[in-house]
């Protein structure tokens, strides 16, 4: 890795740290406004009693990291990015396949399994808790039958440790 790349990474890390603030009392506020000020703060220290609570944090993460491609309503863009409404990947009670996709993007899919023109970028810049939050939100909102069981940071850690798709 070159010095320039290292410096850039350090800069990004510093900026990311700046963006992370203590959670404001937003629980009853309107859905989070766009970036950068309203990005959810670092979730790793927080625990969530219910899937609803976790999903609330996930909504803003969805807007910032997923909606740009899958659109705010999850409807996708014809031929470029799929609709995720009722998608098999997220409707499966076992979240491992979905988590692999979030972490590594469409690079985990076999060439033959790719049905869309665009690539899904890996979202591994998100922490385990952030991914748990966004996955919980997406499963609640877009699964064929809303899945209320939260995805946990431990689930994400398993997916992160595994190189490819679940067996």
């Amino acid at each position: 890795m070159t010095v320039r790349v290292l410096a850039l990474l350090a800069l990004l890390a510093a900026l990311a740290a700046c963006a992370r603030r203590e959670p404001a009392a937003t629980a009853s506020a309107k859905p989070a406004a766009p970036l950068p000020d309203d990005l959810p703060s670092d979730l790793s220290a927080k625990t969530f009693a219910t899937a609803e609570a976790l999903a609330k944090e996930g909504a803003a993460l969805f807007t910032q990291n997923c909606a740009t491609c899958h659109m705010a309503d999850g409807g996708g863009v014809p031929y470029l990015q799929p609709s995720i409404k009722g998608s098999a990947g997220i409707s499966n009670p076992d979240p491992q396949l979905f988590l692999s996709l979030i972490l590594r993007g469409s690079a985990v899919l076999d060439e033959g399994a790719k049905a869309y023109e665009n690539d899904m970028a890996p979202q591994d810049h998100l922490s385990d808790t952030e991914i748990a939050a966004v996955a919980t939100y997406v499963r609640q909102r877009f699964a064929a039958q809303p899945i209320t069981k939260p995805v946990t940071p431990a689930d994400v850690a398993i997916a992160r440790a595994r190189p490819g798709l679940p067996p």
């Binding site: 990474l9 990004l12 990291n65 970028a121 810049h125």
Partner: peptide
């Protein structure tokens, strides 16, 4: 070009280089 801005593995994601 099958790419957004030739940002490596993170092309199209935060911190693409």
């Amino acid at each position: 070009s099958p790419s957004n801005a030739y940002g490596g593995k993170k092309d199209r994601a935060l911190g693409a280089t």
